[in-house]
Simulated assay, not measured.
Amino acid sequence: MSVSTHFRPPAVAGLFYPGDSQQLAVEVSALLAECHPPLLHPKALIAPHAGYIYSGPVAAQAYALLTPLRAIVQRVLLLGPVHRVPIHGLATTGADYFRTPLGDVPIDGRAVMEACKLPQVAIHDGAHGPEHSLEVHLPFLQTVLDDFSLVPFAVGMASATEVAQVLDLLWGGEETLIVVSSDLSHYHGYQEAQRLDRQTADDILHLHPLSSHEQACGATPINGLLEAARLRGLRPTLLDLRNSGDTAGDKSRVVGYGAFAFEA
């Protein structure tokens, strides 16, 4: 008996980023070409997840670091907040592939099953279906890495420790990269957003837990990463800190974006 292959189709292609594969490849390559990354060997990244016109230049600063690791990174743990479907704990997937206009990214099914042994993790494809916070990172990863598998987690109501437990379980070696998806402050004036986001960046750089989702929509997975970073001695570096008023929007109501790398 044949077993059908389950694909998670793109939800925001043509909205948050180009839906045409050639146009998407050109746009991602152009964003990366604008970067001049420092010499870092990151174990983990924090990068934003808005439409590329807004946050793409900031996200590219994180992904440009991975070019020297193209053949080394073989698995990506990708965690982002849920925006559409409220959930408890962390939702992973029963899909075999996540699809983008650039192709299909295989899911590490063995790692998914291992994570599901933890009580806070469950397969919940309904949470992934409309969610953009993970999807928008995939074209960057497909561009800067060779063959890699994905372990996706949409993070809902969970503690930092519950997130850190998942990271610890699947930590691996240099073949495993962690990516946390998060924007920063939302809908403040330009100068107020700058002030708030500088404080958030300072908290992250000192491995201090974020106090609320007002600082970052992905505060829960960020705090899980910060807990793991403290335990494993990772050092964070700020790569970029801007907002939509700097990239493509007006300055009256902006969204903040930050890019960070964590190195052992």
Score class of each variant (00 low, 15 high):
residue 131 E to V: 03
residue 131 E to P: 05
residue 131 E to K: 09
residue 132 H to C: 05
residue 133 S to D: 05
residue 134 L to V: 02
residue 135 E to S: 14
residue 135 E to H: 12
residue 135 E to C: 12
residue 135 E to W: 11
residue 136 V to G: 04
residue 136 V to W: 02
residue 137 H to P: 08
residue 137 H to I: 10
residue 138 L to W: 00
residue 138 L to Q: 00
residue 138 L to Y: 00
residue 139 P to H: 03
residue 139 P to F: 01
residue 140 F to A: 05
residue 141 L to Q: 11
residue 141 L to A: 13
residue 141 L to W: 09
residue 141 L to E: 09
residue 142 Q to A: 11
residue 143 T to D: 04
residue 143 T to F: 00
residue 143 T to E: 02
residue 143 T to S: 08
residue 144 V to A: 00
residue 144 V to M: 01
residue 144 V to G: 01
residue 145 L to N: 07
residue 145 L to I: 11
residue 145 L to S: 05
residue 146 D to I: 05
residue 146 D to S: 15
residue 146 D to A: 14
residue 147 D to H: 15
residue 147 D to N: 13
residue 148 F to Y: 14
residue 148 F to P: 05
residue 149 S to N: 11
residue 150 L to A: 03
residue 150 L to T: 05
residue 151 V to E: 05
residue 151 V to W: 10
residue 151 V to N: 01
residue 152 P to W: 12
residue 152 P to L: 12
residue 152 P to S: 13
residue 153 F to S: 07
residue 153 F to P: 06
residue 154 A to C: 15
residue 154 A to N: 13
residue 156 G to I: 13
residue 156 G to Y: 07
residue 156 G to N: 09
residue 156 G to W: 09
residue 157 M to S: 15
residue 157 M to G: 10
residue 157 M to T: 15
residue 157 M to Q: 14
residue 158 A to L: 12
residue 158 A to C: 11
residue 159 S to C: 11
residue 160 A to M: 06
residue 160 A to G: 14
